[in-house]
Design a binder for these strands. Sequence first.
RNA 1: GGGAGUAUAGCUCAGCUGGUUCAGAGCAUCUGCCUUACAAGCAGAGGGUCCGGGGUUCGAAUCCCUGUGCUCCCACCA
Length: 876
Amino acid sequence: METADKYIPRQIEGKWYDYWIEKRFFHSEPDHREPYTIVIPPPNVTGILHMGHMLNNTLQDVLVRRARMQGRNACWVPGTDHASIATEAKVVAKLRAEGIDKSSLTRQEFLRHAWEWKEKHGGLILKQLRRLGASCDWDRTCFTMDEARTEGVLKVFVDLYRKGRIYRGVRMVNWDPAALTALSDEEVIYKESQGKLYYLRYRVEGSDRSVIVATTRPETILGDTALCVNPNDERYAWLAQDARVVVPLVGRSIPVIRDEYVDIEFGTGALKVTPAHDVNDYMLGEKYNLETIDIFNDNGTVNDKVGLYTGIDRFEVRRLIEQDLEQAGLLEKVEAYTNNVGYSERTGVAIEPKLSMQWFLSMKELSEPATRAVLEDTIRFVPAKYKNTYRHWMENIKDWCISRQLWWGQQIPAWYLPKGGFVVAETEAEALELARERSGDPGLTLADLRRDEDVLDTWFSSWLWPISVFDGIRRPHNPEIEYYYPTNDLVTGPDIIFFWVARMIMAGYEYRGDKPFANVYFTGIVRDKLGRKMSKQLGNSPDPLDLIDKYGADGVRVAMMLCSSAGNDLMFDEALCEQGRNFGNKIWNAFRLVNSWSVDDKLAQSESSRLAVEWFSARFDKTLAEIEEDFASYRISEALMAAYKLFWDDFSGWYLEMVKPAYQTPIDARTLAQTKGLMEKLLQVLHPFMPFITEEIWHCLAERGETECITVSRMPEPQPCDQELLARMELIMETISAVRNVRKQRNIPNKEQIALKVIADENYHAEFAPVLVKMANLSAIEPVTEKCPDAAAFLVKTTQFFIPLGDKLDREGELRKLTDELAYLEGFLASVMKKLGNERFVSSAPEKVVATERAKKSDAEAKIAAIRERMAELQK
RNA sequence: GGGAGUAUAGCUCAGCUGGUUCAGAGCAUCUGCCUUACAAGCAGAGGGUCCGGGGUUCGAAUCCCUGUGCUCCCACCA
């Protein structure tokens, strides 16, 4: 049968994925087996697959597939996140493109559009994950805003409210004037921005003097309610205790207060205080009981409180006010200034600190068991360095602002009573009942109640994810949650350690009394080969699906795994995909070779084949043990590299060459069967990394029943291996290399058989002679007792080998080589002697170390003697 | 401003408790080969101030101090 010499992934990947799904191999139900559970970090429902997802999900798939093959009941739960701000922004943009303004719609109408959009475009990313080979249990696909999850969220909200952990409060929040919502601190990104520092003149009342104040935001003078100087600043000692100043342009009279908060060194040492629009000023305002004047509308334009610049955008006002101040002679000077400005992670606009009524979750108590769990390694972080980051955040945790002024999300289950006050309940009916009780008015109807307009922060649903995907919030004792929870591994990025990981841990202890997962594997950020973060703007991120088309899913998976070490950023280079694809091709060709052999039943197994099988089996077991260890410490890329070398070097490069029959001659049945068996085991080891090609070849190697897929086969377990055998073979391999070297240097074609003579000693293992003969294409190996003249000679450990060359021998060249070798060995010996000559070394170093030094010495001496003899021989 | 991490071959990275698995791997490069599974391959080769400087030790890539570079997190002085 003819098989192509190039492996074409496209032809088989879709076929096998469909087959696995059809046979329901990825579906899991609780049973008697030990569970292995991963919940996917839910991507945004409107998201599309990028390289970060590729990395993250390949890792999860490797772990899940491996666990499945180890006989565990593997369950990987997929799903998507409703991502309130991001999704709402997309829907708003889409409506705008259709000429519909969000403000012209009712909440219900808007949500209808949003759901429509979600049904149409949502979840594309999950389909894309199938291309990658992700072995998720798709029957379990969840959405953070589906019915079960939403009910869970509301139940938790009510529960926390009743426990007194949720409260309402006026706080300074990070206001996003584009999305028209408050953001949590974690959603604000600070960036250095080029700005200006304006020096403004505040006239002192009843005096002809004035105070100069430096500010980066002159437009906020509209909201100034005080001026503050440091009490220790002598420059302002002349100001009366009850001095008042006049706000430029506005003309408002405000008090001068004194507080050590003000940095004497900065600017002029005088600070304007705008409690409504600056976090620090807000605190001063609280302390000195200052008036708070909110000057902005929600969209960032100036309101009519002051009567100046009404309706104009904040940045435009800044420009205008600069001119107006200048004209009024109230602008002392303007300097260029670089400062840090917060921007919305979602919309990119500058954050406006704003006072508003929000819902908060008190975090202190929740954080305590969660902090302990990580510090005591009940939950293991890989790499462990993130424990520090985690601890630092948890120990300084602040209350969580959980309300968002959006429509897309879970609406806060609070209802306001007509005469003030509110009730919190899971359902409208319950709310009504409570409201009647509370108000003492049994005639109250739902229409009398007004539900809070805000929705909950998206993370308020995703922090429940490991529980809610098994419906463990609504039905805490259902068999699924009790079987699958706690989950095993969480694979995610360190950038959401606070947003998500920490909060899941808190929710886990609060609602299950147990950790949500045993291990957290933090991936790095995928960067391009220049070290730049991959981004749409830079256009330096390849489309994962294009890569899959070009290199095959297996190839791209290998690429991702090769460059990822836990917690480190990875420099992705498309060349790695090539390496992955090449590896697939190598596997394919090894299969083609094995597949091409015809069997002769009468043939007995040759000695060299018998030895080859024995050796490779040992080699396999040794590597398998290493791979086990790598997995245990989450060194996934090293595990893959070990398997890669095992297949490429040991199996293809050595083993197959050892057992390969001469061209167009048959192989014995025993060797063929053993080779296929070894290959099957190799495919199994590789399957978690390269699911498609391994499944394909698995079925080509033998007739299989309908469900006898590699995907659900049992992973080989490491057996003790014969180290002695491996060491002996190592020497034979060295000898083969040495013979090849001689051929190369002397231009002796590989086809030409040559003779080898050996002075056999304890390091020469004659039983391997058949392997040596075959691999080095020797006519014979002849044991001798004397050195052989006119021969190329080489040393393997202590064994001397000779290849008679007759007059082809290049005495000059040979001598030069020997001289170099001698010089090296003498230098080496000298350093060993120096060490051994050091009494302190001999007396204080452990016995073992001294012994190895002594062994080095005698070894080097023997070699030097042999080389000297050989040189003398050549010089005759 | 506070904290953490990191620096090893051209690139990406291993290197655990200080000593023969200590200077490694893969890729890239160079030199031969279209040798009948594979040129997406085979056989070889070269390549290092283990960031600089001190220290501890019989012995340091490894431990300590210090400097420098890079990365990240937290805070947000108007």
